[in-house]
């Protein structure tokens, strides 16, 4: 089960490097937030699938709402000169690590009681 996202990520990396699409320097913050949202969704999806609670709608809506909120915060922060995107980075990063720790725990062999 865990190998599907690993293979997908590897494949995506190859595609991204081969496509070689440059983007304007002023968008690098938004691209980083997009990457963070995707990672959060991916880790959440892996965890949910390991727990057998995966729901497509929740996954996609969660990704969309996360992305929209993160980009809005980043945009607003840039407009008013305050680094509001840090809030999104912090929240998404925290979720990422929580999901990762849960994944690691689920992957561990269960102790016999």
């Amino acid at each position: 089960m865990i190998w599907i996202p690993v293979v997908g990520t590897f494949l995506g990396l190859m595609i991204g490097i081969l496509i070689n699409v440059p983007f304007p320097a002023r968008f690098d913050m938004y691209v980083a937030l997009l990457l963070l949202s995707l990672l959060a969704t991916l880790f959440g999806g892996i965890r949910a699938s390991l727990e057998n609670t995966f729901h497509t709608g929740i996954c996609l809506s969660g990704f969309g709402s996360n992305l929209i909120l993160a980009l809005t915060l980043a945009f607003l922060g840039q407009q008013i000169g305050v680094d509001l995107y840090l809030a999104a980075v912090f929240a998404l990063g925290l979720g990422l690590f929580k999901n990762l720790s849960q994944i690691v725990r689920l992957c561990m062999p269960q102790k016999q009681a």
């Binding site: 690993v6 997908g8 990520t9 590897f10 494949l11 997009l34 995707l38 991916l42």
Partner: peptide, 9 residues
């Protein structure tokens, strides 16, 4: 999602 993440990465 993994592919998208990889592309963006």
């Amino acid at each position: 999602i993994a592919v998208c993440t990889g592309v963006v990465g």
